[in-house]
Amino acid sequence: MPSLRYLASAFAIAMFAITLGGAPLPASAQSFSDVQRKDIETIVRDYLIAHPEVLEEAMAELTKRQSAAEAEKHQAGIAKHANAIFNSPRNVTVGNKDGDVTFVEFFDYNCGYCKRAMLDMMELMKGDPKLKVVLKEFPVLSAGSVEAAQVGVAVRMQDPTGKKYLDFHQKLLTGRGAADKARAMAVAKEVGLDMSRLDKDLASPEIRATLEENMKLAEAMGMNGTPSYVIGKQVVIGAVGVETLKEKIGIARCGKATC
């Protein structure tokens, strides 16, 4: 006969699964009478009160399984969309364009954390001459974010080298106030873009096509915020800091956090 600890653990995990996912009780549990079920619930309740660490174990196992499922989804998404993620002609590519590791960042010009992430990116490029960096507009925070991203795409369209785009990117992210079309256009003028061509390109279907491509990729990766990254076969969500990003780059490069 299974131990009481085993029954309590199984019951706790089942209760969490039901609560989180709406899973039905197994057939064996459904066969209990109301009196039997009440007795079991009382026994398990008393056991869990006496041994609350069982709940911690159940939650740890649940978190572990969820993390594994999420990582599997990320890897499958990267494998399916690798060409669009790393090599799309709509990408903005800076750093070493022939680098051995590609570092892809999805960002929003109104994301406060993206300002810090931008500094992390610049530090990584400075310290890692083999790093290829790809920037993808992912405007999810506001209408102003969409407007700024549209201008960003137009900047990319007339700057295939990415040099003026990177200047534009840094100035817009670090400027004061909310980013929108007016601010983005002012920054574009400041960095020396052809404003007549910029106005023309803003009406191009390429603007919408680029943002739609980025949105679909982010959805496929399970990204729900900015900044988000794809580094090798890894998806990283949030401004995790330069040291964590270095570790992810190391894993992509040589399979270890430090190569």
Results as ranks from 00 to 15, higher is better:
Ser33Arg: 04
Asp167His: 02
Leu131Asn: 07
His74Glu: 12
Leu131Arg: 06
Pro139Arg: 09
Ala84His: 02
Asp34Ser: 15
Lys136Gln: 05
Asn83Leu: 02
Lys256Asp: 13
Thr161Glu: 04
Pro24His: 10
His81Tyr: 15
Val236Tyr: 13
Thr63Asp: 03
Met59Lys: 12
Lys38Gly: 14
Val187Glu: 01
Leu245Ala: 04
Ala178Met: 14
Glu212Met: 11
Ala71Glu: 11
Met1Leu: 11
Gln36Tyr: 05
Lys189Glu: 08
Lys163Arg: 08
Lys189Ala: 15
Asn214Phe: 09
Asp180Leu: 01
Tyr109Thr: 04
Asn87Thr: 11
Thr42Cys: 03
Val155Ser: 10
Ala117Ser: 12
Leu202His: 01
Gly162Cys: 06
Ser67Cys: 00
Gly21Asn: 12
Asp199Gly: 07
Ala252Arg: 00
Gly99Gln: 10
Gly175Phe: 05
Gly250Ile: 12
Glu41Lys: 13
Ala50Phe: 07
Cys111Ser: 03
Gly21Thr: 07
Arg183Pro: 06
Val235Pro: 00
Gly250Pro: 13
Cys114Asp: 04
Lys189Trp: 05
Asn91Lys: 03
Met15Gln: 12
Val44Ile: 15
Ala50Thr: 01
Gly232Thr: 10
Lys246Trp: 02
Met125Pro: 14
Asn96His: 04
Leu131Trp: 06
Val104Met: 04
Val35Ser: 03
Gln170Tyr: 01
Thr244Tyr: 00
Lys216Asp: 15
Val236Pro: 08
Phe86Tyr: 14
Ala179Arg: 06
Gly162Gln: 03
Ala184Phe: 00
Leu4Gln: 08
Val187Tyr: 02
Leu124Glu: 08
Asp46Met: 14
Cys254Leu: 08
Ala58Leu: 07
Ser196Cys: 11
Leu7Ala: 01
